[in-house]
Each structure stands twice: as C-alpha cells, then as structure tokens.
Simulated scan of single mutants.
Amino acid sequence: MQKLTNKEEEIMHIIWQLEKAFVKEIMAEITTKKPHYNTLSTIVRNLEEKGYVSHNAYGNTHQYYPVVTKEAYREKFMASAIQNYFNDSYKNVVSFFAKEEKISVDDLKEIINLIEKEK
C-alpha cells in the first residue's frame, strides 16, 4: 500500500464518506481551496493507479468507489507512524500525548480498563 499525499488523503476521506462519487460530487465536498476540476480528476485517477479506488463507467463519466477501507489505511498509516516516529513503541506514543497534554488521566484510566478487560 503506497503512502498518499496530503491532498490524496483528503480526497480519500471524501470518497470514504460518500462511498461512491463522481468527480463533481467530490469537488462539492472539498472545504479547503478547491482545485481545478481537471486537477481533481487527475488526483482521483492517481488514487486508482495506487489501488485505493476503482470506478464504474457510465459513458464518458466515471463513478469512483473505495477499494481500500479507511480502517485498513488507518492501520497501515498508524503502524508506519509509530515505527518511524516512536521507535515502534506504543508506550512512547502514549507518553508523547501525555507530555503534550493531549490525553487526560481519565482517558489513560479508561485505556487501562480496556486493556485489563481484554486480558
């Protein structure tokens, strides 16, 4: 699974949300600066070449749909980020968020409870 650019990832989130979409429908969902229609069409075709989406053809138009699930992408992306930025340590990930005050003590207690229930 190839890494996506930021713009490709943004477009994939829209496609995951819509489940099936024509380029004009994807364009309507973009909340940041909208690219030119042809640029967006190229991005979607790149996603298809990378194996993230496929399409159904209706004459000259294509309706795109995801081939890779959001969950599969998240799993791959998170595993890569944890390996590359946290020395493959989930403890380092949690420690990072605790130091940045992005996770509360209550959240940590809830995580501990979830872990203990799994055992």
Rank of each mutant, 00 (worst) to 15 (best):
Y52K: 05
I30V: 09
V53I: 06
K50L: 13
V53K: 06
V23G: 02
K34F: 01
R45L: 14
L47I: 06
S54K: 12
E48N: 07
K50M: 05
K24T: 12
F22N: 08
N46F: 03
K20I: 06
E25W: 04
V44H: 03
T39M: 02
K20R: 15
E29V: 00
A28H: 07
S41K: 10
T31V: 09
K24H: 15
N38A: 10
T32L: 08
T32G: 07
F22W: 06
G51T: 08
G51K: 02
L47D: 06
E49P: 00
T39R: 12
Y37C: 01
P35D: 09
N38I: 13
T31N: 12
L40P: 06
A28N: 12
T42C: 01
T39Q: 11
G51R: 05
G51F: 05
S41Q: 11
N38Q: 13
I43C: 05
K33D: 15
T39H: 10
T42P: 00
I30M: 06
T42Y: 10
K24P: 00
N38V: 11
E25A: 09
N38D: 13
T32K: 14
A21I: 07
S41L: 12
S41P: 00
L47H: 02
E48H: 04
S41R: 12
K34M: 07
M27I: 03
P35Y: 08
G51L: 08
I30E: 04
F22A: 14
K33M: 06
I30S: 02
E25C: 05
L47A: 02
M27F: 08
E29N: 15
T32Y: 12
N38M: 10
S41D: 11
S41T: 11
K20P: 00
I30Q: 03
G51H: 04
Y37F: 14
T31R: 14
V23Y: 01
K24R: 15
N46S: 13
S41N: 12
R45M: 11
T39P: 02
K20C: 07
K50C: 01
K34D: 03
R45G: 01
I43N: 08
V44E: 04
H36W: 02
Y52E: 06
N38T: 15
K34T: 11
L40D: 05
H36S: 07
R45K: 14
V53A: 02
Y37K: 09
F22M: 14
H36L: 10
N46L: 08
K24L: 07
Y52M: 06
I26Y: 03
V23I: 15
H36C: 00
T31Q: 14
F22E: 15
S54D: 15
T32H: 10
R45F: 12
S41C: 03
K20Q: 15
V53W: 03
I30K: 00
K24G: 00
T31M: 04
T32V: 12
N46A: 12
A21D: 02
G51A: 04
V23H: 01
S54I: 00
V44F: 04
K34S: 09
M27K: 10
G51C: 03
Y52G: 05
K24A: 11
Y37T: 07
T32Q: 10
R45S: 13
R45E: 13
K20A: 12
V23M: 04
H36D: 14
G51P: 02
E25N: 09
